[in-house]
Design a protein around this nucleic acid. Structure first.
Lengths: 175, 175
DNA sequence: CACACTAAATTAGATTTCTATCTAACAGAA
DNA sequence: TTCTGTTAGATAGAAATCTAATTTAGTGTG
């Protein structure tokens, strides 16, 4: 029943933050994010808006759900971010004709113009992060981070699957 | 004046989230954090408290400032987390005798007991993350993430140094 | 058709984290 | 000793994110 296990370090190995993937990804993400926001904020773009803009530069017209999936955020986070971006005129919400539940998201001209200002910002911050590191090691980093987030997401999904119903209304006990 | 630069990828390379360290560390950290919190919450420990507990298991009696530095959080974040942990009885604040500004942080017996319950939780989540990955690659991951956060933190420090005074009260213009 | 189930977006409320600012206490120089 | 600057911690207020619940719309089955 248990999935194949990777070799487990002795427990006390994780006493030290430096050894835990959680700690290392957190501190790296936060310093990356602060560096990036310092640059984008001058163009009126906050840290929370940035990932949605990048996704939209690649493809417009997605529904909010699809957009959430692409940027790796939960749907309420997307709603909040889009509200702000709509208010300042970066995006438009367009209700679907075929399905009135759906909303398609498009950039405004203003939102589209940000691209050429902001892509150099990420490029610069990535370059700072990569300083004095072997590009081959960075390629490994990308591969490993992606695989890890897949591993962890799959585990979450398994957990959810095996726990549906637990919090359902009282009338719905399994037969 | 400019620091030595790493080779910069073409700007459009960073159109794709998968290539940006910011995106990859964010999604990995978030899925890691959700997985860990699901386990620790059963012992009454939230995601925000966890890094402080781990630091304190390693060393008690630090000041709040030193503790902030160890866990990689800002000081107001530490204050908030410690308030919560004090309220539920995981820690004690002990004012310093020599310097009345300082406060030393100690675990209670209850806080200390959590260790043996929680270390296996991180170990487990790390093992899930590491599934089907080459340990050598994970070692590279650790090394590279640490170096990147150093690179980015140094850049932030440089920025702050060259900008002190900018937001000081109006009387303080440089001579 | 009516009922129940699923799906998309939103709302409500909480948590985590940050920046900027404030207060109190110490340390050194005039 | 008094003034000035620095250090430690706390506060205020905001942003980003989450989970859980709600609303509205579509789908499918008896």
């Amino acid at each position: 029943m248990a999935a194949k296990k990777a070799p487990v370090q002795t427990a006390s190995f994780y006493d030290m933050p430096m050894n835990s993937i959680g700690y290392l990804t957190r501190i790296t993400f936060r310093s990356f994010s602060r560096n990036l926001e310092r640059r984008t904020i001058e163009h009126g773009v906050s840290a929370g808006q940035w990932p949605f803009l990048r996704a939209l530069w690649n493809e417009e017209g997605m529904t909010q759900r699809e957009l959430s999936r692409r940027v790796g955020m939960r749907e309420p986070t997307t709603v909040t971010a889009l509200n702000g971006m709509e208010r300042v005129g970066f995006i438009k919400r367009v209700p679907s004709k075929e399905d009135r539940r759906k909303v398609h998201i498009f950039l405004t001209a203003k939102g589209r113009r940000l691209r050429e200002k902001l892509i150099p910002c990420v490029a610069e911050v990535n370059a700072i992060a990569a300083n004095e590191l072997d590009p081959a090691d960075i390629a490994i980093l990308r591969k490993v981070l992606l695989k890890m987030s897949e591993n962890l997401t799959r585990e979450e999904q398994n957990y959810l699957k095996s726990h549906v119903g637990v919090t359902l209304p009282l009338g719905s006990a399994t037969p």
